[in-house]
C-alpha cells in the first residue's frame, strides 16, 4: 500500500512538474503557492485532490452543456411570454403557467404529436424487442455464418438515419402516381409478385396508417441491431449446462425458450425495453428522413409530427412553449420508465 502510494506520488509529481509547473508559474507567479500545492497534492491530501482533478473536465462539460440547460429549461417554462431576444433586451417576465396552457391549446398541434409518438412507441418497442429476441436466439443457435449475419444485422446501427430514411423513401415510392404510367418502388413491386395491388405508402394523398406502417417498419428495423447485440451478448453468457439439463429432461424447444431462455435474459430484455421506450418518445429524425421536415406526406391533411418535432418547431418562435413541452415530454418519459422499472423488478431475475 505504502509502496503504491510512493510510486503514485512520484509519478504524479513528475507529470505535474512537466506539464503544469510552467503554467501555474506563469499564471499565479507565486512560487510558494506551487510548492505548497504540490506538497499537499502528493503527500497530504493526495487522494482527495487526485479524484477531483481527474473529474474536472467532465464536470465542467456537464455543468455547461447538461445541468445549466436543464435548469434554464425549467426556468423558461414557467416564465409567461418568454422570449430570448426580449430577455437580452432587458425585459422581465412574471412567473406563470401560460406556456403550458399554450402547449395544451388544441391549435398548437401538441395533441397530434403526442398521439403519433404514443402510437409509434407502443407499437415499435414490443415489436422490435420480440423480433430482436427471436433473431438473437436464432443467431445464437447457428455456428456457420454467425459472425457474417451478425455484421449484417448490425449495419443499420452504423448507418446514418437520414440516409436510411431516403433509401426507405425510394423503396416505398410510387413515381408518377395518378398518371397512366406509374413506376413502383421495390416494395410495391414485391407486392405485385404476390398479385397484390400497389399501396400508396408515402406519396400524395396517402393514408395516415400507410404512412405509419412505413414509419413502424423503419423504426423497428433501425432499432433491431442494438437490441440484437444486447440480447445476443446475454444469450452467450448463459451457462450451457442449463440447456444440457433441459435436454436431459426432454424439454420441448418452445418451453426451453419461455421457461429458461427468456427468464435468464430478463435483465437484458428489461434493459432494451426501457431504453427502447425512452428512445421511442424521442423519435424524430426517422420522420424527417422519410417525409422531410414538413413532417407529413404531400397533399395530406394529417401531420406525422412527434413530440421532439413539436419542441423543435416551437423553439423557432416561442422558447417558452418549447420548454414547457420539453418538461411535459420529460414527465411522460419519467412516468413510463417508472412503470417499466416497477414491472421489471417483479418479473426480472438477476
Amino acid at each position: 500500500m505504502d509502496d503504491n502510494k510512493k510510486t503514485g506520488g512520484w509519478f504524479t509529481e513528475a507529470v505535474l512538474n512537466t506539464f503544469f509547473k510552467e503554467w501555474v508559474w506563469n499564471t499565479f507567479c507565486v512560487k510558494w503557492f506551487w510548492k505548497s500545492f504540490c506538497v499537499n497534492l502528493v503527500y497530504k491530501k493526495f487522494d482527495k485532490w487526485k479524484a477531483w482533478i481527474y473529474l474536472v473536465p467532465a464536470i465542467v462539460l456537464l455543468l455547461v452543456f447538461t445541468v445549466w440547460p436543464i435548469i434554464n429549461t425549467v426556468r423558461i417554462a414557467f416564465l409567461d411570454g418568454y422570449s430570448i431576444l426580449g430577455e437580452v433586451g432587458g425585459e422581465t417576465y412574471s412567473f406563470g403557467i401560460s406556456n403550458f396552457l399554450d402547449v395544451l391549446d388544441e391549435y398548437s398541434g401538441f395533441g397530434e404529436a403526442l398521439k403519433n409518438t404514443l402510437w409509434l412507441t407502443f407499437i415499435t418497442v414490443p415489436l422490435s424487442t420480440i423480433l430482436a429476441l427471436i433473431i438473437a436466439v436464432c443467431l445464437n443457435s447457428i455456428k456457420p455464418l454467425q459472425k457474417f449475419l451478425q455484421t449484417i444485422f448490425f449495419l443499420p446501427y452504423v448507418t446514418n438515419s437520414i440516409a436510411i430514411g431516403m433509401v426507405f423513401e425510394a423503396m416505398f415510392n410510387i413515381v408518377g402516381l395518378g398518371t397512366s404510367d406509374p413506376s413502383f418502388g421495390i416494395i410495391n413491386n414485391i407486392l405485385g409478385v404476390f398479385g397484390l395491388d400497389p399501396i400508396n405508402w408515402i406519396n400524395i394523398n396517402s393514408s395516415y396508417w400507410a404512412n405509419m406502417a412505413v414509419m413502424i417498419i423503419y423504426i423497428v428495423w433501425n432499432a433491431l441491431p442494438f437490441k440484437i447485440l444486447i440480447l445476443l451478448g446475454g444469450l452467450q453468457s448463459v451457462n450451457k449446462q442449463y440447456y444440457d439439463a433441459a435436454k436431459i429432461d426432454s424439454t420441448p424447444r418452445i418451453r426451453v425458450f419461455t421457461r429458461i431462455t427468456v427468464p435468464l435474459l430478463s435483465p437484458m430484455i428489461a434493459y432494451v425495453v426501457i431504453t427502447g421506450f425512452i428512445g421511442g418518445f424521442k423519435e424524430y429524425s426517422s420522420i424527417v428522413g422519410i417525409f422531410g421536415d414538413d413532417m407529413q406526406a404531400v397533399g395530406t391533411e394529417h401531420t406525422l409530427n412527434t413530440m421532439v418535432g413539436y419542441i423543435y418547431d416551437a423553439l423557432g418562435n416561442n422558447e417558452g412553449r418549447a420548454s414547457a413541452a420539453a418538461l411535459i415530454l420529460f414527465a411522460i418519459i419519467f412516468v413510463v420508465t417508472m412503470i417499466n422499472l416497477r414491472v421489471s423488478k417483479k418479473k426480472t431475475h438477476y
Binding site: 451457462n239 449446462q241 442449463y242 444440457d244 439439463a245 435436454k247 436431459i248 429432461d249 426432454s250 421457461r259 429458461i260 427468464p263 435468464l264 430478463s266 431475475h349
Partner: peptide, 20 residues
Amino acid sequence: SPENRGIGLVFQNYALYPHM
C-alpha cells in the same frame, strides 16, 4: 438422445434454474 435414455444427471455446478 439423452432424453430417451431415462437417465438423471447432476452437473458439477448443479445447473439449477436460478429463476425458479
